[in-house]
Simulated assay, not measured.
Amino acid sequence: MELSVYLAGEIHSSWREDIKQLVNEANLSITCYGPMENHDRSDHIGEEILGEQPTAILKDEAASSINNLRTQILLEKSDVVIALFGESYKQWNTAMDASTAIAKGKPLILIRPETLHHALKELSNKAQVVVETPEQAVAALSYIFEEE
């Protein structure tokens, strides 16, 4: 068996690499997908494809359409979604991706610190699993592969 996992969350820290390393160390047959982690490329992809835009808002709209295309395809392709909420960044895209996973019936593993329990209580209630660390998320995935 092989699983595809979409890693939703901020793109400013190394948490995705941590997950991938843990998956490799556990020798799990998992392919990970996620948003474009090169922030400049993500911000400029609309103009790269559609041409220069006349305003900053239209530049954002153009980039959003291309980034949303990527997210929709890769999230749809995934068997499981892991959404990480941390303390440092605004998490609107993470909330959107987690909600999309729920709406599509994709199993959701939510990683969030205890301090965000109240803020994320409704989303947590809809997730299949809520954990506080990437290690716990990978342990939950590892359990899927156990035969006994």
Rank of each mutant, 00 (worst) to 15 (best):
M1A: 12
E2G: 00
E2F: 06
L3A: 05
V5M: 04
V5D: 03
Y6W: 09
L7M: 08
L7K: 03
A8L: 04
I11G: 05
H12N: 11
H12E: 10
S13R: 03
D18M: 05
K20H: 02
Q21S: 15
L22T: 03
L22H: 07
N24I: 01
N24Q: 14
A26S: 15
N27E: 14
N27H: 14
S29R: 12
I30N: 01
T31F: 05
T31M: 06
T31H: 08
C32N: 03
G34F: 07
P35E: 09
P35C: 04
E37P: 00
E37F: 04
N38Y: 06
H39I: 12
H39C: 04
D40F: 05
D40V: 03
S42E: 05
S42A: 15
D43Y: 05
D43E: 13
H44C: 02
I45Y: 00
I45D: 01
I49P: 00
L58Q: 15
L58M: 14
K59T: 09
K59R: 15
K59E: 12
D60K: 13
D60W: 01
E61M: 13
E61I: 13
E61D: 14
A62Q: 04
A62L: 07
A62P: 07
S64R: 10
S65D: 06
I66W: 03
N68Y: 08
N68R: 13
L69W: 09
L69M: 13
T71K: 06
Q72M: 05
L75D: 00
L75F: 05
E76M: 04
S78N: 08
S78L: 08
V80T: 10
A83E: 08
L84R: 15
L84P: 00
F85A: 04
G86D: 15
E87M: 12
E87L: 13
E87S: 12
N93K: 06
N93V: 10
T94G: 10
D97W: 02
A98D: 09
A98R: 08
S99L: 03
S99V: 02
T100W: 06
T100L: 09
I102E: 07
A103K: 11
K104E: 07
K104R: 13
G105C: 14
K106F: 07
K106N: 09
P107M: 08
I109H: 04
I109V: 15
L110E: 08
I111N: 02
P113N: 14
L116M: 15
L116V: 05
H117V: 11
H117A: 14
L120M: 10
L120P: 09
K121R: 15
L123W: 01
S124L: 08
N125T: 12
N125C: 11
K126E: 13
V130E: 10
E132T: 13
T133C: 03
P134I: 00
E135M: 01
A137E: 02
L141N: 03
Y143P: 00
I144D: 02
E147D: 11
